[in-house]
Design a binder for these strands. Structure first.
Length: 403
RNA sequence: GCGGCUAUUGUAUAAUGGUUAUUACGUCGGUUUGUGGUACCGAAAAUCCGGGUUCAAUUCCCGGUAGCCGCCCCA
């Protein structure tokens, strides 16, 4: 039926929209160049710390997320793309990478030599209303170190996060590493005699601390008595104290102990951290992660602990834009061949092949348009080429460079 | 799921209750049967959809839709 075709062959004006699906992006070459730059920088820095890349499908069985417990019920039901396939299987577009990597680790647990350092740059999906720094599809660098409980591991992963930002050209004063320790908070709540519910309520309240103005009042309600966090600097011999000292030794000083960093309700059990843009223009965290006791508990009885973080491409790009940081790598040389007549086209290809062979990395493209040479030269210049070669009947083909 | 703001050529914008709706960039063509750019000329190209008020709506009002921003949530 003509009406079913995606193109309009009739006289009506019901053309399809050229907009992408809600909350996802098209990557035109200019955007793709930026995306590529971000991915390349992520990979390069992460690999320089010895992390190996892995990946998996965007499709996962829905059970992978549903079994995480009642706390996540709302997220799974309302904020994932979940559908039933033709074989009656419930399928979810992955909303995060951690369950997937936990599955992969668990599967090879017996043969892996821990600690394992892995990273990935998956695209993730969540069904919710798009807003600044938050879309329905985004790419996220995920770095994890599995099978090490050491303070050194905590320090390393935060140092990696720090280095990532530096390698984008950021200065330490542009961002702030907020660190907390779940275990430390729990200890504190136990001292207060809090029930599990009280502790959770308090964590939840702390998470919203910056957004509400009656924190003390609310805290008192939960505690049933006046509640003072009363935590200043962590003791030097505490886990957090040791981590901070370790970072300091590496010259990382833009850290801040932040009791209101709690990272939602999930698998985190120890040190947790977030990196924020201090400019105030991006109020979403640039990066967040933490330590978990038993990532593979769903799949096996042998616990594997670890620590990791994720950082998204959307917030990364916002950060680069806000601080006027470079968003492209330096371009390689690009020569445009300009045949003067159609019968010079093949000659242009032959010369192009030669140049590519002799100058690895040089981009050589050919302008086959049938139009005046000055127009072609101008087109090459506008495209950002570094130079051009006019191909005519003569044998010479010297490169003319743009200033 | 809730709230605020917005909607004009491809993009970014100006203006208006009343014949040709502004400008810039971009695109295409020309000034130049031919070796670059800052100049000049020209062309194509827009008032989101539906209803209401009005002699007349792109403009005012209502609804829809879409986008942005925020809340919720944040893996």
């Amino acid at each position: 039926m003509p009406g079913d075709l995606p193109y309009n062959h009739s006289m009506s004006n019901d053309f399809l929209s050229t907009d992408p699906y809600k909350g996802v992006r098209d990557f035109y070459p200019e955007d793709m160049a930026i995306q590529q730059y971000i991915f390349d920088t992520w990979s390069k820095t992460t690999e320089s710390f010895g992390y190996e890349r892995y990946d998996a499908s965007v499709l996962e069985p829905a059970s992978l997320y549903k079994s995480k417990g009642a706390v996540n019920e709302e997220i799974v039901n309302d904020q994932t793309y979940t559908f039933t396939d033709r074989g009656d299987r419930e399928v979810t577009l992955r909303p995060e990478m951690t369950p997937t990597v936990a599955r992969m680790i668990a599967k090879k647990q017996k043969e892996l030599a821990f600690p394992v350092r892995w990273y990935s740059i998956p695209n993730l999906f969540r069904y919710e209303r798009p807003q600044k720094g938050r879309l329905r599809e985004h790419w996220q660098l995920n770095c994890d170190m599995f099978g090490s409980d050491t303070v050194a591991a905590d320090v390393e992963i935060i140092a990696l996060a720090h280095q990532l930002l530096l390698d984008f050209g950021a200065k330490p004063e542009m961002f702030e590493i907020r660190i907390n320790d779940r275990a430390w908070m729990n200890e504190r709540f136990e001292q207060e005699g809090f029930t599990h519910e009280q502790s959770n309520a308090m964590l939840y309240l702390l998470d919203r601390k910056a957004k509400i103005d009656n924190f003390d009042e609310e805290a008192e309600k939960i505690a049933g008595k006046p509640f003072d966090l009363g935590l200043s600097d962590p003791a030097p011999d505490s886990r957090l104290g040791q981590v901070l000292a370790g970072l300091m030794q590496l010259g990382i000083n833009n850290t801040k102990v932040s009791l209101s960093t709690v990272r939602g309700f999930d698998y985190y059990t120890g040190v947790i951290f977030e990196i924020f843009d201090v400019s105030g223009e991006n109020n979403r965290s640039l990066l967040g992660g933490g330590r978990y006791d038993n990532l593979t508990g769903l799949f096996s009885a042998d616990p594997v602990s670890g620590i990791g973080f994720g950082m998204g491409d959307v917030t990364m790009r916002d950060f680069l834009e806000t601080h006027n940081l470079p968003m492209k790598k330096t371009k390689s040389e690009h020569i445009v061949m300009i045949p003067t007549k159609p019968d010079q086209d093949n000659k242009a290809q032959m010369i192009a092949a030669l140049i590519r062979q002799e100058n690895a990395g040089t981009v050589v493209s050919i302008d086959y348009n049938d139009r005046q040479v000055p127009k072609k030269i101008e087109a090459a210049r506008k495209k950002g080429a570094s130079g051009y070669i006019v191909i005519d009947e003569t044998d010479g083909h010297s490169i003319q460079r743009f200033e």
